[in-house]
């Protein structure tokens, strides 16, 4: 009995000290001078722009990574080919490589003097120091989540239901949308939540490729850093809280959807 209580104490204490307390403190500091001060800090043009830019990046990166993640998981689980192990390892690359390196790599390709950067700039397409580059960076760092959540679920459901659908006359596309997708929906949902959280919070890679132009290429995370460095601590806390709330909403939305599954 004592041992179990001890374990619980350690687990909760660890979370409290390292997660709950610091995050709680940020919330406290953000509202220290009242809701008005918080509201003011978040309604400046730069803050508004950062908010909507972050939303835009998430809105583009998450659907793309969801579609690719499901496709990639299908390939990894259902197909056998040479180089499959390589693909499997490559998916985890964004976990292994530091976001800063990812940012630099993007500049090497799309930046001035980059691999295809000059050609793109000549044709009027700006990738680096602009939204496309930031979206690419976000996609890169949040890529593995859907794949990693969906692969085990696909393995578990097996292929019998799909074969049954096939013998009943369903085309591959019908089988996917009516059988496979509903069967893996919770894996996908969880992957989407993690992808969203990661995309919202990305700093390193986006920081490198963005150029950090206030009101142009500044996301919420970059806004936090910018304000922090300008000693605008209240403003930094406010932006942090907005980020945290967005992430919490994402988690909450999944938990709200989930009970319907219980049948």
């Amino acid at each position: 009995m004592k041992g179990r209580l001890g374990l619980r104490f350690v687990a909760i204490g660890y979370l409290a000290a390292l997660l709950a307390f610091p995050v709680g403190l940020v919330f406290y500091r953000a509202f220290e001078h009242g809701v008005d001060a918080f509201w003011e800090a978040m309604t400046t043009p730069d803050a508004q722009h950062a908010f909507w830019l972050t939303v835009e990046m998430v809105a583009i990166a998450v659907p793309l990574n969801t579609a690719f993640g499901v496709l990639c998981a299908l390939v990894l689980v259902r197909q056998n080919f040479r180089g499959k192990a390589l693909l499997n390892a490559a998916v985890d690359l964004p976990f292994a490589v530091s976001p800063v390196v990812i940012g630099l790599a993007l500049i090497l390709i799309y930046g001035r003097d980059g691999w295809i950067g000059d050609w793109l700039i000549e044709n009027g397409i700006r990738v680096i120091f602009s939204t496309p580059g930031m979206i690419l960076a976000t996609i890169f760092v949040s890529l593995p989540f859907v794949v990693r959540e969906v692969v085990p679920v696909l393995r578990e459901i097996g292929t019998e239901q799909e074969q049954a659908a096939e013998t009943l006359g369903a085309s591959p596309l019908q089988t996917f949308f009516r059988i496979t997708l509903p069967a893996i929906r919770w894996g996908v949902a969880y992957g989407v939540v993690l992808t969203t959280a990661r995309a919202l919070g990305e700093f390193g890679a986006v920081s490198i490729v963005s150029g950090k132009l206030s009101g142009q290429t500044e996301t919420l995370t970059l806004l936090v850093e910018n304000r922090f460095q300008r000693f605008d601590l209240a403003g930094a806390y406010a932006a942090s809280v907005v980020l945290a709330i967005l992430a919490l909403l994402t988690l909450l939305s999944m938990n709200l959807l989930r009970p319907k599954e219980g049948r």
């Binding site: 049954a164 013998t167 009943l168 006359g169 085309s171």
Partner: peptide
């Protein structure tokens, strides 16, 4: 293909 064979499985 299986879906066009008219078999019940």
């Amino acid at each position: 293909p299986a879906r066009k064979r008219g078999v019940g499985f």
